[in-house]
Computed example of a mutant assay.
Amino acid sequence: MLPGEESMLGAGDIHLWQVDLADERWDSGQVVLHPQERHGMDIERRRARTALRLILGHYLEYAPQHLMLIRDELGKPHLADKPLHFSLAHSNSCALIGLSRVSLGVDLEREDESLNCSRLFDWVCHARERFSLEALPLALHRAFYYRLWVAKEAYCKAIGLGLRKPMTSFWVRHFGRGRYDIVDPGEQGGYRLRYLPSLPGWTAACCSRLVAPRLNCYWATPSAQNNVLKLSA
């Protein structure tokens, strides 16, 4: 069931939509895409963008094909003249879309068991996080890497810098009972982090300035009605 008026996005809410990009039914909705979206992306990105437009159109009660998705001076995508923030991430055959009234970032990653993460820690791990890493058994290093990666990429998206922000310049701080924030000497603080429930083999996180956001999670699936692709949940 799609969120109705009683559960639509409030000031302290974050709504999270998971999308199965292996579902070929998304392809029949590509009419909602702009030409450069249809021709400048691979099939999974087109399906993710189709789902994003349908979801945004539902919340704004606006035709998804007429939404103007633009980028700011830092390259962060946003809606032109619409009071709704979004973040889109996709990995392999799954996408995650976050919606809020404040700036946010989401990320998810499919865990690769063959990944040699030891060579990547120099790129992603702050000096303070090295102490936590070195205290872990080797068998847990891969999970630690993915949790760091999704947390940091979600934060970089929230502040609009993406991967231009060096991940070693800030750190993820755990302050008890599943609560995390971002400590970044180079930016104004106040960003909180939530790790998200996800499918086995996936890691996901969401970052925003909301101290205690109300999270609502949905599965986005396509539904053809009268030869028009609709969103269902």
Rank of each mutant, 00 (worst) to 15 (best):
T203A: 03
Q18M: 09
G12S: 10
C217Y: 13
L231H: 14
H126I: 03
Q225R: 13
H141S: 15
H85R: 03
H58R: 00
R130V: 10
C207W: 01
A204E: 00
G57I: 09
E73S: 14
R179V: 04
E129K: 07
L69A: 06
Q65E: 15
M167Q: 00
H126A: 05
D23G: 08
L210T: 00
I97K: 02
P137R: 13
A135R: 06
H58T: 05
G201Y: 03
M1G: 11
M68N: 05
I55Q: 01
V19F: 00
A204T: 04
L148M: 11
G162Q: 09
M41E: 01
E61P: 03
N227H: 14
D107M: 10
E61G: 05
S198M: 08
E6K: 14
A143S: 12
A22D: 02
P3A: 08
L2Q: 11
D184W: 04
Y145E: 08
H39G: 06
F144Y: 15
R119G: 03
P35C: 04
S169G: 12
Y146H: 06
N116I: 06
P197A: 15
D122I: 08
F86I: 02
E109F: 12
L52W: 05
D27L: 11
P213E: 00
R194E: 01
S118D: 14
A158G: 12
V124A: 01
R110N: 10
A63Y: 06
A143N: 15
L148K: 08
L84V: 06
E109H: 05
M8E: 06
Q36S: 10
C117S: 13
I182C: 05
V124W: 01
W171K: 02
L9W: 09
F175H: 14
H58D: 01
A89V: 07
A48R: 02
H141Y: 15
G29K: 13
G40E: 15
D112R: 14
D81G: 04
H66D: 12
L96Q: 04
D42I: 09
